[in-house]
Structures are given as C-alpha cells and as structure tokens.
C-alpha cells in the first residue's frame, strides 16, 4: 500500500458515499445515470468474486463488501425508493454497446482463461467505460448539479491516482499489470474533459454547465 493507492481508494470511497448521501438527503436521483450505476454494480460483482477464493486483508475485504453493498443500495434508491425522480428521458445510452464489446475483449485478452479471471478482466474493461452513460447524460442536459460534479471528480480521480500507484509499484516492486494499466489509462482519459470543466468552473464556485 502506497500513498497513491490509499488516496485512490479514499477518493473512490468518498465518491460512492457522496452519491448515496446526495440521493438520500435531496430525496432525488435527478441528473444521475441509472445505467452507469447498473454498470458499476456489474463491475463490483464480477471483480470481487474473489472474496470467496482469496483473502488479501481485512481492509481489502471490507472495501470490496462496501463497494458491492453501496452499488446495489444506489440502484435500489434510484429504481425503487426515489424512482419518481429518476430522469430516464435523459438516460438513454445503450449499455449493450459497452457490455457486448467488453465481454468479447475479456474473452480474447486476459491473463488466464479461467472463469474468475475472465470475469475480473471483464470488470476492469467495463469499469473503464462505465461512466459513459453518466457523461452522456451530462452532455445531453448540458449541466450537472455541483454535488454530482464532486461525485464525478472523486470517481475520476480514483483511477488516475491508481495510475500513479502503478508507476510507483513498477519501480518499487517491479509489479505491473498491463490490463489494469491500459484500462486505467482509458478510464482516466474519458474524464479529461470533465476534469477541465470541474477545475475551471466548479472549483471557482460556478455550476457545471456545458457551452451550447
């Protein structure tokens, strides 16, 4: 565990907590893509199946369980409790266009052709693009609530911090995982535009709105 990895995990944890609290406190999931949330639940479910096969640390297991539980809780809040506030007219990204190619790629490019390893690879690839329905929704409505921007910033920062963690681990431990690194790069690049808007607008106290 190095400082980049820890900062990345904290950022990831904060993102998820901010989203749940936002929905709970405002009694609304307006502006949040349920499709991205479904993809994230799929990501955590397929990646953390190793909870049953490998024990790494109490920290590792606790975080995994938290991510899985929080992702399903978010889906429950969006599709059941606060369903009336869900903005489905703007949440129209076709997730099969992500799931199908990602499944194919996971079958073709993986470390090991075993069920758990293929599911892990699938989750890494899927995570890299899972935010697209949310970014699509923001671009469609042309704006995002400030709290949603904070959520997106924390969520995007997490994988970018992991990139620094992987650079560190490569030099310190000789460890590298090309699948995670390339997917992490893709994931971080997808947020670049958003990061720019966040820094130039939200941090200066303005609402995040896109140029027409």
């Amino acid at each position: 565990m190095n400082v980049f990895r820890l900062a990345g995990d904290i950022s990831h944890l904060l993102a998820i907590i901010v989203l749940v609290i936002k929905i709970w406190k405002t009694r609304s999931c307006a502006g949040i893509s349920g499709r991205s949330q479904i993809l994230f639940a799929l990501v955590y479910t397929t990646r953390y199946l190793d909870l049953f096969t490998n024990f790494i640390s109490a920290y590792n297991s606790a975080m995994k369980i938290f991510f899985i539980v929080a992702s399903y809780a978010t889906i429950f809040l969006m599709y059941s409790k606060f369903r009336a506030t869900y903005d489905h007219n703007h949440d129209t990204f076709r997730i099969e266009f992500l799931i199908v190619p990602v499944s194919g790629l996971a079958l073709l490019v993986n470390h090991d052709f075993t069920p758990l390893e293929i599911l892990w690879t699938f989750s890494i690839y899927l995570e890299s693009v899972a935010i697209l329905p949310q970014l699509f929704m923001v671009s469609k409505t042309g704006e995002a609530e400030t709290i949603t921007s904070h959520y997106l910033f924390a969520l995007g920062s997490y994988r970018t911090l992991y990139l620094f963690n992987w650079i560190y681990r490569y030099y310190a431990e000789g460890f590298y995982d090309l699948i995670a690194i390339i997917a992490g790069l893709v994931q971080s690049v997808l947020y670049c535009d958003f990061f720019y808007l966040y820094i130039t607008k939200v941090l200066k106290g303005k609402r995040l709105s896109l140029p027409a």
Partner: peptide, 10 residues
C-alpha cells in the same frame, strides 16, 4: 505480465 489470479488491488 506478472499478475494472474491474485489481484491485490480494488
């Protein structure tokens, strides 16, 4: 690649 089966990151 060095890593297979055991993934110690989240």
């Amino acid at each position: 690649d060095t890593n297979s089966e055991i993934h110690d990151e989240l």
